[in-house]
Structures are given as C-alpha cells and as structure tokens.
Design a protein around this nucleic acid. Structure first.
Length: 219
DNA sequence: TTATTGATTGACT
DNA sequence: GTCAATCAATAAA
C-alpha cells in the first residue's frame, strides 16, 4: 500500500479574516483567499478501509463568511447544514445540494469565523481504478473529478465526512509536491452564484491554467 | 404551512 | 445551446 506524506499542519488553515483589505480587491477576508490559492497542487487523500485514494487539487473557490452573499454563512446565518463552517480551520464542511450531489469545503480561519474553500476539481493520482468505479458516467479520466460534485462522488465523500478534521485517518490533505509559479494560476469569478450581487464578481476562483482536470466543458 | 431555489451534473436538441 | 433530476434548506405566507 502506498504511504502518504504527513498531513498539512493546522496552522496552514489559520486565516485571520480581520487583517484588512486584500490585493484582490475584495474588501475583507484576505487570508482565506490566499489559502484557496495555496491549496492548488496540494493532495486530497481518502482512506476506504485498506485502500488509499489521492487526488491533486487543481481548482478552488474562497467563500468569505458573513459578508459574502454567496456563502452559506451570509449574514452570520447558522443552521444544521452549515454548522461545520464555524469549526476551526482544518476541518471539512460537506453539504448536500440539488437533491443529489455533495460538495466539500476546507474550513479556514478560527472557530466561529465561517470562512471556507470549496474544492472544485482535482486530478486523480492514486486509486484511480476505484475512482473510475465511483464515477461510472465519466467518459474520460479528465472528467472523473472535474467539478465539486464529481470530486465528492469519485473520492467517496458524503455526509459522513462533514466536520471531520483534515489531518485524520479517513480524510486528509498533504502539501504540494512540485512548485507552482504564480503565472500558472488563473483567477476568475466564482461559478454558479449569479444571484449574489457584487459578490458574484469577486475574483475568488483559482485554477491551474490549462490543466485538463478543471471543471467546465472541454473541447 | 407551502413555495422557491440551489457553491451541479448529465442527457439531449 | 436547453433542461430534467431530486430534495433539503431557506424564504415566504
């Protein structure tokens, strides 16, 4: 069985949302934006019994808590669904949407600050046979994890992983194995949140430029 | 209590 | 390009 590197330390996820304006132009939540960027290239691991699945993160989006109209925590809302968003940085927030899909976030910042990074797409690097079985409708390998719902389906992530720490046995994230230059990172507005006013335009989506495993239709 | 909508995907024209 | 699937969370009444 493949041996995984050590998980990222909890300090990796310790954003400080009160530090001030950010160079991105977003008027708050500076560090969670940086964590969304830094998560590109990091590896998401999932243990299923004896088997380890792994995928390199290639697309993320930052969600900035109470002041972000697109966030499930907009206006400071607390509910049974978004409870995990208020955990300390370094936990998973997994939710169910459209009656059929799960999406996984990496919670950032301190406890009671509901900031998080949505994992939108990844590139399978280990356990790909199992990932293919989990994604029977995928027509090619670059579609196995090329969207937030696909990523959860392929990596067998569901309600049971909501609230888990990201340095645990069943689910964890490890550091980049190669350098990623700033020029390799593309920044856009977020997907699927058109009804969130100005927040719809904020540059909070990060992806590895030209990577075939990102979300969206392919040529 | 009922109605609307969604951090999506996949099939179809 | 359009649209159905499918249901929980949230909003509206």
């Amino acid at each position: 069985m493949k041996r995984a590197p050590a998980p990222l330390p909890r300090s990796f996820y310790a954003a400080n949302p009160r530090r001030g304006p950010h160079a991105s132009g977003v008027p708050f939540g500076p560090e969670t934006v940086d964590i969304a960027r830094d998560l590109l290239g990091c590896v998401l691991w999932r243990r299923l019994g004896d088997e380890l699945l792994a995928a390199r993160i290639v697309e993320t989006e930052a969600y900035l808590g109470a002041n972000d109209r697109a966030s499930h925590a907009r206006g400071g809302l607390r509910s049974a669904r978004n409870r995990s968003m208020y955990l300390a940085g370094g936990h998973a927030y997994v939710y169910f949407t459209y009656g059929m899909h799960f999406c996984m976030n990496v919670v950032t910042a301190e406890e009671d600050i509901a900031e998080a990074v949505l994992l939108r797409a990844a590139e399978p690097i280990h356990g790909i046979e199992t990932i293919r079985r989990n994604r029977p409708k995928a027509k090619r390998d670059s579609d196995l994890l090329s969207g937030p719902g696909k990523l959860c389906m392929g990596m067998a992530i569901n309600r049971e992983q909501d609230g888990l720490p990201l340095d645990g046995k069943a689910l964890f994230i490890t550091a980049r194995e190669v350098v990623i230059e700033d020029q390799e990172i593309e920044v856009t507005s977020r997907i699927g949140i058109d009804n969130s006013g100005e927040a719809s335009q904020w540059p909070l989506r990060f992806l590895i430029r030209g990577n075939p495993h990102v979300s969206g239709r392919k040529r």
